[in-house]
Design a protein around this nucleic acid. Sequence first.
DNA 1: CAGGCGATAGGTATTTCTACGTAATGCGTA
DNA 2: TACGCATTACGTAGAAATACCTATCGCCTG
Lengths: 214, 214
Amino acid sequence: MCKVEILIADDHAMIRQGVRSLLSRNSQWNVVGESVNGREAIQHFHDLRPDLMILDISMPEVNGMEVAKHILTGNSDAKIIILSMYNDDDYISKCLEHGVRGYVVKSETGDQLEEAVQTVLRGDCYFSSEVQKSILKHYSGNSRKKATDSDIRLTAREVEIVQLISEGLTNQEMADRLFISARTVETHRANLMKKVGVKNAIELVKKVDQLGLI
Amino acid sequence: MCKVEILIADDHAMIRQGVRSLLSRNSQWNVVGESVNGREAIQHFHDLRPDLMILDISMPEVNGMEVAKHILTGNSDAKIIILSMYNDDDYISKCLEHGVRGYVVKSETGDQLEEAVQTVLRGDCYFSSEVQKSILKHYSGNSRKKATDSDIRLTAREVEIVQLISEGLTNQEMADRLFISARTVETHRANLMKKVGVKNAIELVKKVDQLGLI
DNA sequence: CAGGCGATAGGTATTTCTACGTAATGCGTA
DNA sequence: TACGCATTACGTAGAAATACCTATCGCCTG
């Protein structure tokens, strides 16, 4: 009988070791690979075709959310569990949109990760009680974007772009990270500056920050 | 024969599990406790008197560096190994000042943590090669310039330039306003970015603002 | 079903910034 | 006085951003 093949993606060796150790409790589970960044994670997914993937959110090169999105676009039935440092509403709702099957916060116990793996392998979704609170908040209308002072509204993608701009990334770097063309990034950038009414990226970052549009 | 008693402090259960698993390779080592925040870590240290303590930097309540400082003030021979997410010069030099015996970055392999524990138990200090680079930087006399961010000093003119950059002016506009050549503005800009250690204007504005250099 | 909108991407041209040099001038101080 | 330092400036290149436009595709909604 075949073992369940699991891929772990996390840039921190300690975490990988922890997850590995937890999974080894169950003899039916087999860790077939470890990825240390997002790009590698995608590569490994395609090479190894694991039954389940445990994915850290914050990783170099390409972050976990983008990895999940990228993989789930072509393989909507892929079983992905997100492992995150924080219990962040935005991350959680984004992950849900993309179709991940589980979300576990690193501060939670190993038992919870184990349960998550079991649940997801059965074909269900797993979200810990802490995470569920965020989900509830999201669906109770409470997480509606707080009314901004101005009537400027940025799309999700635009917010993402602004954040990357404010981190000092160039268009090409953003393009690589988001798997889109640098020209598309330019378009977003231009739209943003027009929307906000500024004439360069520096003013854009300042204004968006000041208006709390993120 | 008594086993070596080790205390682990980290708010993330996954990490604790990983470290535990790594340490279990050596039958002489025994994890006698786990702390999930800084306050608890100090309490556990006093209660359990472990032979060695593995301490995460970022923890709720009291961060790892404060814990180390607090413990080492009263017990300068306490054996503490810092486990950190990042290879940050500031953290490292501060930890060294306080007297910690080892510093391991979480992205490093389990072998390195194991070696760190062995080395520190022998009474020596352990710093991985990556960390050593930071230490060298600090002691190579170059430290005044780079070791601590807060030591960066901007000249009056540079401050002026940064402010104008953050207003979104181009080099030419700044030049016109200051009655100097655009090339001069470029020189200032380049010097600023080199000084602050960033690669473009957006990061410059953000960093300068964040460090309160204006 | 049509129309709006968001995300995607390209064309062309111009402006701006960044990287690496070098170097003159003036001002304070060891 | 001689030296460091801040300020000024230029050369050459190449990378990146900005300005305008057009255009497709998919999704949701009236």
